[in-house]
């Protein structure tokens, strides 16, 4: 029996690139079929009725037809466009890093329903714009890393196995795969040292405890734990996360406006 010519799925549009005169190739993460590329014909025409439904960071119901190189979008109806997120540079910078991470970590066409649910959750959190965008991104990054087998160990030293006291500030090594004790930190290469507040957040995040992460994050500067988590992702995926550069530029902009 042949596979049906068309199929439906729900997806998040991650990226897009121009193709041909008026087409766009979209990288999507779907609920059922993982991450893959599809082509949307005529999407760059000003009068395309689908364009607004297929922008990056849109959650969309798709009807796809099997194609030779890429499957073809035949229908698209946006479920969520995350409008507040779209209108804030800071939130876009956070979402951009999440998308970049997903693209770096997931293989093509491999069912990744867990990562899909996490990304929907993150975009909803960011769009709600109730503050706490950075801790939501940290929770997402660490959760996705765990899901793809690169979890960050925060309870024991990943080198010698010694338990790390609950009140001890964490030292994280991307190459070692998580927290290292003071002794092992000496020859662990590049490390990031967290202060007490950041340690509390990272421990909650590593446990998957969102309420605790949210509560502890109010006090903490999350830049170091977030950088450590993204270093970890870069090291284990062996890919550069370029979206960090955009986020850094937005951060500099904030400083410039304030000063």
């Amino acid at each position: 029996m042949d596979t049906p010519r068309v199929y439906r799925c729900e997806a998040l549009v991650l990226r897009h690139r121009d193709s041909g005169e008026t087409d766009r190739v979209l990288r999507v993460l779907s609920d059922r079929y993982g991450m893959f590329d599809v082509v949307a014909r005529g999407l760059r025409r000003a009068a395309s009725r689908r364009a607004g439904h297929l922008e990056p960071l849109t959650r969309v119901d798709l009807l796809l037809a099997h194609g030779r190189t890429y499957d073809v979008v035949t229908q698209a109806q946006a479920r969520a466009v995350y409008r507040s997120l779209r209108e804030s540079l800071e939130l876009l910078a956070l979402a951009g890093q999440a998308v970049d991470l997903v693209c770096a970590l997931l293989p093509e066409r491999q069912e990744s329903a867990g990562v899909y649910r996490r990304l929907v959750w993150l975009l909803e959190q960011l769009d709600a714009a109730s503050g706490g965008g950075r801790v939501a991104l940290l929770f997402f990054v660490v959760g996705v890393l765990r899901e793809v087998g690169f979890g960050i160990e925060a309870g024991r030293c990943v080198r010698c196995g010694r338990d790390l006291a609950a009140d001890q500030d964490l030292v994280l090594s991307a190459a070692a795969g998580g927290a290292v004790c003071r002794v092992c930190a000496h020859d662990a290469g590049a490390v990031r040292m967290l202060d007490a507040d950041a340690t509390a957040v990272l421990r909650a995040v590593a446990r998957g405890d969102w309420p605790a992460a949210r509560r502890t994050a109010a006090e903490a500067d999350l830049r170091t734990p977030l950088a450590a988590a993204l270093d970890h992702a870069q090291y284990h995926s062996d890919q550069v996360l370029y979206a960090r550069g955009f986020a850094a530029a937005v951060e500099r902009l904030g400083e410039r406006v304030v000063s």
Binding site: L14, R15, P56, L57, L89, L92, A93, A95, G96, V99, D100, L241, Y242, A243, R244, G245, F246, A247, A248, A249
Partner: peptide
């Protein structure tokens, strides 16, 4: 154009 998703920065 700047790209938050692909990391195209102002420079």
């Amino acid at each position: 154009a700047l790209s938050p998703l692909d990391g195209v920065g102002p420079e």
